[in-house]
Nucleic acid binder design. Structure first.
Length: 408
DNA sequence: CTCCCTTTGAAGGAA
DNA sequence: TTCCTTCAAAGGGAG
């Protein structure tokens, strides 16, 4: 058991040591000399939080007109659409136009909508780094005055090599059949949409990533996706079409992305290219380390973006709570718990039956071995002919905490 | 087909 | 106030 000898109990360090991909890119992940302390970062974070929680949105406070624009998207469209259709590639002529385009989970950065109905990602979505210089101007940018200062690297993200960006641009399908990523189409403009834009055909839009304001928002996804399927598969026999249709239209508003998520979205492509890794779990580990190696200023950029995302999200969905999306895993957990409760030999029931401490198993959870080794639960009969719950390691049939007794 | 893994941060509930 | 849980993204891998 290597963990035993790892010493110091530095879990993080140990974890890193165990990572097979550690070598890759490790050298380039040197922490800058001016690296901030965790305390500094915490200060920064709290300052950002305070700023956002203070006397309202600074951006909004600075620009009351912006609030009105958000509240009146149609007006925004009318005012902004022509410009940003030009800027954002509605001309769809320039194959490299995405290179500098802005996309994020939210519209003010968005060129395409990653939350298209049926769980399908926009063909533009997942390859496009979230945080990139904004080429087009989103209608909501007055509200969220994204400054290209955040992207002071000129036309290219420093994190994203030009070749990658170009590759992404090359893979873009024709814009002709694509929805422009900005929120874009005023209700008045719907009639101009081609019938092939199936997701836009429903007048109410609500089942199609459309906010009640009429703004399609990437955070809104219909329930027709994974979750809905799961519910259907597990709990339902085929239902009459109307009911299923009705359920499928219930929109899901997703959480706004936090700073790290924004960073991941932007940097994932680069890491994949550098490390030739495809597994997201491994990539995320690398990204996590790189995130910690970022300078204070670089991290602040993402915290600021995340803060603005939250602001916009709050303004678009005032009553929304992250709790609204709770349930999937919770339901699973509950089901497992119910299974456990229905099992007469479940640890909980057996411990209760024999007056054992619920906090301590037969061998005791404080036992180091018992926590590390695979366990199996045994319900055996004691010499009093009473059933007794036992936990024993399956490790070579030997259970150290049981004083060397062989597994029953 | 579905869930897990893996990361950080935000949010909400429980203690 | 602190701690815990869940979910955001992503896509390969496992069952």
């Amino acid at each position: 058991m290597p963990q035993l000898g790892s010493g110091g109990g530095d879990d993080l360090g140990a974890t890193d040591e165990m990572l097979a991909f550690k070598d890759e890119g490790e050298q380039e992940e040197k922490i800058p000399e001016n690296a901030f302390t965790e305390r500094d970062l915490a200060d920064l974070k709290s300052s950002l939080v305070n700023e956002s929680e203070g006397s309202g949105s600074p951006a909004a406070a600075a620009d009351p007109e912006a609030i009105r624009r958000v509240q009146d998207p149609q007006r925004v469209y009318q005012e902004k659409l022509p410009d940003h259709m030009d800027d954002a590639g509605m001309k769809h002529q320039d194959p490299g136009m995405y290179k500098g385009s802005a996309y994020s989970g939210y519209p003010f950065l968005m060129l395409s909508d990653p939350y298209l109905p049926n769980g399908s990602m926009s063909p533009l979505s997942n390859k496009v780094p979230v945080v990139q210089p904004s080429h087009g101007v989103h209608p909501l940018t007055p509200l969220i005055p994204y400054s290209n200062d955040h992207f002071s690297h000129g036309s290219h993200s420093p994190h994203l090599p030009a070749d990658i960006s170009q590759k992404q641009a090359v893979h873009r399908p024709s814009q002709t059949s694509d929805i422009p990523g900005f929120y874009p189409l005023p209700p008045a403009g719907v009639g101009q949409i081609t019938p092939s834009m199936g997701w836009f055909t429903h007048p109410l839009m609500l089942g199609s990533g459309m906010h009640t304001t009429g703004i399609p928002h990437p955070a809104i996804v219909p329930h027709s996706g994974k979750q809905e399927m799961e519910h259907y598969d597990r709990n339902m026999k085929p239902q009459p079409e109307p009911k299923r249709e009705k359920e499928a239209k219930k929109p899901t508003i997703k959480k706004p992305l936090n700073a790290f998520m924004l960073y991941m979205k932007e940097m994932r492509a680069k890491v994949i290219a550098e490390c030739t890794l495809k597994e997201s779990a491994a990539i995320n580990q690398i990204l996590g380390r790189r995130w910690h190696a970022l300078s204070r200023e670089e991290q602040a950029k993402y915290y600021e973006l995340a803060r603005k995302e939250r602001q916009l999200h709050m303004q678009l969905y005032p009553g929304w709570s992250a709790r609204d999306n709770y349930g999937k895993k919770k339901r699973r957990t509950r089901e497992k718990q119910q299974d456990s409760n229905s099992d007469p030999a479940s640890p909980k029931k057996c411990r209760a039956r024999f007056g054992l401490n619920q906090q301590t198993d037969w061998c005791g959870p404080s036992c180091f071995f018992i926590q590390l080794l695979p366990l199996k639960r045994y319900l055996v009969t004691s010499f009093l002919q009473l059933p007794v719950l036992m936990y024993c390691c399956q490790f070579k049939g030997f259970c150290p905490p049981c004083s060397g007794r062989k597994r029953p």
